[in-house]
């Protein structure tokens, strides 16, 4: 058993595995974010990720057995992160239109919606969220105009933009929330993000400012966060071990460590 585990998830495999994954990561950098996301959502990429998670669980589980707790925490933490990511990747195939995992709403003041859309111009319908959202007001705050702005005759940069929304969940009283950049709102399994904004014209040809809110449901998120905590604990133990460890030399050279 020990020999088998060391053969399929031993240090040699780890050295090669980390090296290959590092190179693969660099290759993905050349593809860019969008293509990489598509590539990593394909069946082979998901299969390889699941295999990596299995190896990590095997190594971590064996480390628990041999009381090497730093190794157990590090490998199981990584396995947790990869598994959580995989859960997020397969969620769209399980949820369907009843439980979309990702989509956006482009709204102007007063709009009431529960449908999510995707695509560059938000033209593809993806499903409905189990609550309705009304945009009360979209607000943009600017920095104070500096003398450089004034002499250049331009607007100062944007300090903050936010959407004040009223959420109505079935069987509950409506309530108001502010969605700001860096401050998503959590409603019934969905995080609502202030993604962007823009200017367009309404049907009467008048200029309107619209806001884009993004809705994301990720069932693997807490797995990933738990993985982060476990990895952190593992690295702390690993640090202590590395500080205590003596140099390991071939047997004939041991005297130099005395």
């Amino acid at each position: 058993m020990k020999k088998l585990i060391n053969k399929i998830a031993g240090l040699g495999v780890a050295v090669c595995g980390c090296g290959v994954l590092s190179l693969a990561s660099i290759v993905l950098a050349f593809f860019g974010s969008e293509k990489s996301i598509q590539l990593m959502a394909t069946a082979p990429a998901l299969g390889i990720s699941a295999f990596i998670a299995l190896l990590l669980i095997l190594r971590g589980g064996y480390a628990v057995f041999t009381t090497r707790y730093h190794s157990a925490l590090l490998h199981l933490g990584c396995a947790c992160v990869v598994s959580g990511w995989l859960m997020g990747q397969v969620a769209p195939y399980i949820g369907g239109e009843d439980k979309p995992v990702k989509g956006s709403m482009a709204m102007v003041d007063g709009d009431v919606m529960n449908a999510l859309w995707e695509g560059a111009y938000l033209t593809n319908y993806v499903g409905k969220v189990p609550f309705t959202v009304k945009l009360d007001k979209f607000i943009i705050d600017y920095y104070e105009s500096s003398h450089v702005d004034q002499s250049a005759g331009r607007m100062p940069p944007i300090k903050e933009y936010r959407s004040r929304i009223t959420i109505t969940e079935p069987g509950k009283d409506p309530y108001v929330k502010n969605v700001r950049v860096n401050h998503p709102v959590y409603v019934d399994g969905y995080h609502i993000y202030q993604m962007s904004w823009g200017q367009s014209q309404n049907r009467q040809g008048q200029p309107v400012t619209y806001t884009v809110l993004q809705f994301i449901r990720d069932p693997g998120l807490w797995f990933v966060y738990s993985g982060f905590v476990i990895i952190f604990a593992g690295i702390l133990l690993f640090c202590i071990r590395m500080f205590k460890a003596k140099a390991i030399l071939p047997s004939s050279d041991r005297e130099v460590t005395q």
Binding site: S25, I26, L28, M40, H191
Partner: peptide
């Protein structure tokens, strides 16, 4: 996750 909606976007800087 808080700002862009996802904890990992395969952004070049992230992958490097």
């Amino acid at each position: 996750k808080l700002c862009w909606g996802h904890y990992w976007q395969w952004d070049p800087k992230e992958t490097w």
